[in-house]
Nucleic acid binder design. Sequence first.
DNA 1: AGGGTCTATGTAACCGCTTACGGTGGGATC
DNA 2: GATCCCACCGTAAGCGGTTACATAGACCCT
Lengths: 347, 347
Amino acid sequence: MATGREIAQLCGVSVATVSRVFNQPETVNEETRSRVLRVAKELDYRPNESARALSTKQSTMIGLVWDTDHRRPGWRHPYLQDLLIGLKSALSAHGYHLLMLATSGDAREVGASLADPVGYVNMTRRHHLGGLVLIDSGSDAEAFEAFAQSGVPCVALDVAVDGPRATYVTSDNFGGARDAVRHLVGLGHTRIATITGPPGNQPSDARVSGYRAALREAGLESRDEYVVSGDFYRASGTAATQRLLALESPPTAVFAASDEMAVGALLAARAAGLRVPRDLALVGFDDIEIASVVEPALTTVAQDKPGFGVAAAKAIMAMITGGECEGPLVLPARLVVRESCGAVGDG
Amino acid sequence: MATGREIAQLCGVSVATVSRVFNQPETVNEETRSRVLRVAKELDYRPNESARALSTKQSTMIGLVWDTDHRRPGWRHPYLQDLLIGLKSALSAHGYHLLMLATSGDAREVGASLADPVGYVNMTRRHHLGGLVLIDSGSDAEAFEAFAQSGVPCVALDVAVDGPRATYVTSDNFGGARDAVRHLVGLGHTRIATITGPPGNQPSDARVSGYRAALREAGLESRDEYVVSGDFYRASGTAATQRLLALESPPTAVFAASDEMAVGALLAARAAGLRVPRDLALVGFDDIEIASVVEPALTTVAQDKPGFGVAAAKAIMAMITGGECEGPLVLPARLVVRESCGAVGDG
DNA sequence: AGGGTCTATGTAACCGCTTACGGTGGGATC
DNA sequence: GATCCCACCGTAAGCGGTTACATAGACCCT
């Protein structure tokens, strides 16, 4: 690889000038600049990122904190791939790259884990990362708080954080859930239950609030027995539905806080001999791929999946360049009506 | 952040000694070493990766080449998430991180794209990456070849590459397909068709070979009209199936080279008033999440998804440390029998 | 003509770590 | 007791950039 020094020699200028050509082009004479650029192109010069980072104490990398170790096996993030696509393309536009931080330690003690956010933060400093993207991995709000407080620009997904240079992006969980339940209400249901995510999980809590709000609006009482908690996984949706169906006055419609749980509910209904949507209407949340494929296709609340990545990237870049961080970013959540709610084709 | 110099001063040693403590511990006196380590711990010292990389011309990062830009919208890699989990955990064990390289250019010409592998390769040198992981993104075999030839250790997924320090990891597509079709043969089918991936796609080609081999074994003739090509997407599965059903002597069983296409086939069958598996048996490939959820659940060939990541990481690390690169790694592909082939519970 | 300004460039220190090379002291060897 | 070896450690030269500061010339003004 050609170095700046070589270019300098070939052009008869100093390395400082070469550096300036790339960093403050306006300060160098038109003719000199083009000469340097030409030679640089000929030599296929690429500035050494390590040297640059060492010198400026700033790299062109953003860290991705995604803890996979403590997950339940079988768990899949509902929209990781789209998120990455969005993140990557938005960061690319600024010349930034995404660094997936290693989580477990090794002999050299590179390690970091959510249990030890300090480790991550130090990784961040080690690599002079420009910022951090935190992917919600359950109920790690406390751990995330440590990141947010560290002063490193960071944006969390699906969990509210507070810190000097921290924001978060999340869907309009409240609104999405409210719309879903409104739709059910509009279809004539009065006994509407909900299956929630794990207690304390923020998106889940917001969805429950939306559910409650829609009931209130409609003048329907909200019964505690109709709010049963799951954990976002499919099996919990099945179990929750079984409990609901065993009630003295079982619901005629269920709003599940995740598509996985909605599928679980579907299985439970099927097992109980109920037909969906005729005997039990179902609405999910997330709009994962499965949603459109199950029989009947799942009515659900879709999130702007790549939008998460794009929004996160924008927020990070804003903090890096501007310094000020924006307030929480909430993305629209849109009800997509399919078959499981009994209103095919309706909006 | 504490630097090596600070530690050196506090310990009354030179920076060289501090460096040695971390890189060649055996060359430094027991007592000195523990003193340095203690102070390092107190100061929460973390070596500066940029400086280290600059000095050694080797970073602890592996590049991930995953071109999302030229993809059809809506396309999702069948097992990206598992792949990443596997990759990440295996790399972490060696203290390595995964860098998702930006693909599109910006003002600073950081850019790189599969169309310009040289760009990526330069990114690689810029960051002193230890190696590259190439994710198959269609039929980019030619582009990948350029990476493989660049001399950077690289391992490709699902596409054979050849180069001084390159290997690839793939499933036993041939064996998996053969098992699938054998199973169909064992069920009594004699008119078995296949829906392939895009022509030239290596996993697809191997699956077709497996299909042919199983027919040959069974003494069944392989008719050209029974081999219709798709593109891995769902819609192509539907279209292909329609063509197959319109044949004079339509098949009674279809082996699709991807689950997405199998689902497409399912839809086509349903639309044609056929019941699966009674009127048409179906087997897919990949075992994506959808497979177990559709009605009827899809019999398919499962790949060892996290295994891809782990194998890729191992191969890379072997090349980095050992120098020699291993031959192609082929992971087992296992037939999982569900309902769509008509042999529930059977092995 | 002398002084002030502005532009374009060079000089050199520095970022934090690695490593080749050389030096020191103590024990073993003859 | 001179020699040699070895374990341990320091000195200093990089790695390839960035940037504060200095310099030099051109131009304008009084």
